[in-house]
């Protein structure tokens, strides 16, 4: 189980590195798809079927959206990589991050021992024990989403609504086709 989890995570890390290192944007997008489907498989291993289903749907939509951004490039690569100074600075930052994380990692709960086992008043054990009785939902994840934490879901819906409104405004056909012309018009008026 843990070996399978480890190999899947290594696969995801390799896919992420490929996605960030490749010069071709379409290959990068497809490598990101490997990361997403890998995490879907990890969710299945971690006994989270709802998450695995959602992750697959979300990943497919994300791939379609991202491929839309690379279509008109028709395989043209991107320019040369980042400058050495930038890579050194980022590497130094990541190294400092990793060192401070090594201090934090031993304090994490061990894998396979959820926090609710150690803390008696954790809300999770309450949800597990009373969820079916109080909400009537056999699936406790949906019981939490739509009943115990319904306000969080309302906030989620608000965020999605705002983001969709923003994306629609940015991607209006009228807006996209008239962009450079619209700018010239504005300058002419000044």
């Amino acid at each position: 189980m843990e070996a399978l989890l480890t190999s899947l995570l290594v696969f995801m890390i390799i896919a992420a590195v490929v996605a960030l290192a490749t010069r071709e944007l379409l290959s990068a997008v497809i490598a990101l798809g490997a990361v997403g489907f890998g995490s879907s498989a990890v969710f299945l291993l971690l006994r989270a079927p709802d998450l695995a289903i959602t992750q697959i749907v979300v990943e497919v939509i994300a791939l379609v959206l991202l491929i839309r951004t690379t279509l008109h490039l028709s395989g043209r690569g991107i320019g040369e990589g980042p400058s050495g100074r930038r890579v050194r600075a980022a590497g130094l930052f990541c190294l400092a991050f990793l060192v401070s994380a090594l201090f934090a990692l031993p304090r994490l709960p061990r894998l396979g021992e959820p926090v609710m086992e150690r803390i008696a008043s954790a809300p999770s054990s309450f949800y597990l024990e009373r969820g079916l009785e109080l909400t009537g939902s056999a699936n406790l994840v949906t019981a939490i989403l739509l009943d115990f934490r319904a306000y969080d879901t309302l906030g989620e819906a608000t965020i999605i609504f705002t983001a969709v409104l923003g994306a629609l405004t940015l991607l209006r056909k009228k807006c996209l086709t008239s962009c450079p012309a619209g700018r010239e018009l504005e300058e002419g008026e000044r």
């Binding site: 006994r47 989270a48 959602t54 999770s124 994840v141 989403l145 969709v164």
Partner: peptide, 21 residues
């Protein structure tokens, strides 16, 4: 397994998609 992180991560995945869009 603990259903609480799963419910919150479900929210986070969907928000991630709208952020990406």
């Amino acid at each position: 397994v603990d259903p609480f992180p799963q419910a919150m991560v479900l929210t986070s995945i969907v928000i991630g998609l709208s952020l990406l869009a």
